[in-house]
Write a protein that binds this DNA or RNA. Sequence first.
DNA 1: TATATAAGTTCGCTATCTTGAACTTTCTGT
DNA 2: ACAGAAAGTTCAAGATAGCGAACTTATATA
Lengths: 106, 106
Amino acid sequence: MANVLGAKIKELRKQKGLTLEQLAEKIGSGKSYIWEIENKGVKRPSAEKLAAIAKELDVTTDYLIDDAQTEMTDDLEKEVLFRKFGQLESRDKEKIMEMIDSWSKK
Amino acid sequence: MANVLGAKIKELRKQKGLTLEQLAEKIGSGKSYIWEIENKGVKRPSAEKLAAIAKELDVTTDYLIDDAQTEMTDDLEKEVLFRKFGQLESRDKEKIMEMIDSWSKK
DNA sequence: TATATAAGTTCGCTATCTTGAACTTTCTGT
DNA sequence: ACAGAAAGTTCAAGATAGCGAACTTATATA
C-alpha cells in the first residue's frame, strides 16, 4: 500500500462523479498528471496543485497529505466544514458565528 | 510584493525564535532551502515540505498557501468557533452545517 | 457488429525543486 | 578591536514535477 494520496484522490474524485479530464480542467492541469498522482504516484506533488485538488474535492490539503488520516470520520466532516466556512463572505461568516455563539449559550 | 508565502514563513519562524537551520532540521531539509523559500521565492514548493513547515509553525498548510489569507486572526477565530460548534446539540449542528453548505454554493 | 466518442494511459521534454558545501555577514565574548 | 561561532546567502547539479500529444481501452449509440 504505497500510494495513499493517490487512493484518496481517486476515491473522492469518483464520489463526485468526475473524470480525470474534468478534475484536471478544474484545477488547471493535464489529465495525465492527475492520472499519475492517482496511479503511478508522484513523489513530491506541489502544494499548489494539491491545494487546488483539495479545494475541488472539499477536503483540506492537510487531510490529503497526512497518510495517517484515511477515514471519513467526524474529523473529516469537520475539515470539510472548516474549508467551506473559510470560503464564505465575511458577512456570512459573522452570521454563522453569531448563531453558534448564541445557541451555545442555551 | 510577490512572495507572500515566504513572508508568512519568515514571520512565523521569527515569532518562534527559530533560525533557518533549526527550522530546516525540524522538517528535514537544508537551511538553504528555507532561505530560498523565504527570500528568493520558490515557485511550486512541495506539499510535503510545506505541510512539515506548517506543522512546525502551528498553522495549516492551506493557510500558508492561500495568498489571500494573511491574518492569523482568521485561524484563531475558527478554532474557537469550532470548539463551540462541537458542543452544540446535533440538531443545531445540522442546521449550521446546512447553512454553511448552501451559502458556500453561491 | 461497427463506429464514434469518452475515458484512461504512456512517455519524452522542460521547468522547477531541493540539496550540500562553500562562502559572507552578523553576533558574542574578551 | 579581534577571534570564533552562529546566522544567513550563493550556486552548481542531480532529481522530480507537470505538461502536451499520441496512444489504448472502455462505453455508448445506431
